[in-house]
């Protein structure tokens, strides 16, 4: 089973990060690196990426074959997607266990979504 772990960012979490000392930040990044490494070691990690600031996002609307590009997303959005892990693991329980190790989970900013698969049940 594949699961997508989504990590969100909000004003509170950004404020906490900004208030960190250099050492605290370095420790935070080390924690992330260790988490990443352990997911690789268990063979569960498929891909993980951090997303650039949402001010760099483009919103695309296609109309009659023409792409209309606007800066996005909306400025009033306070909470946005900051990164993700795509894992392959045996169960939702296991995916949740991994998600709980992400520092942002302490602020309720981590979500686990099961991935739809193409395999069919013999009905």
């Amino acid at each position: 089973m594949k699961y997508l772990i989504l990590i969100y960012s909000n004003p509170q979490s950004r404020e906490i990060w900004n208030s960190f000392s250099r050492d605290q930040r370095a420790a935070g990044l080390r924690d992330y690196a260790a988490l990443h490494e352990s997911m690789v070691a268990s063979g569960e990690l498929i891909v993980s990426e951090a997303l650039a600031d949402p001010s760099l996002a483009k919103r695309v609307t296609s109309h009659e074959g023409q792409a209309l590009v606007t800066d996005g997303p909306y400025a009033e959005v306070k909470e946005y997607l900051a990164g993700f892990f795509l894992l392959e693991c045996p169960s939702m329980e296991r995916a949740v266990e991994q998600a709980a190790r992400i520092p942002e989970a302490a602020f309720g900013l981590v979500e686990v979504r099961p991935i739809m698969a193409l395999d069919g049940w013999d009905i």
Partner: peptide, 9 residues
């Protein structure tokens, strides 16, 4: 369901 063919069915 987590299966696309099942969902369609």
């Amino acid at each position: 369901t987590l299966s696309i063919p099942e969902q369609r069915y």
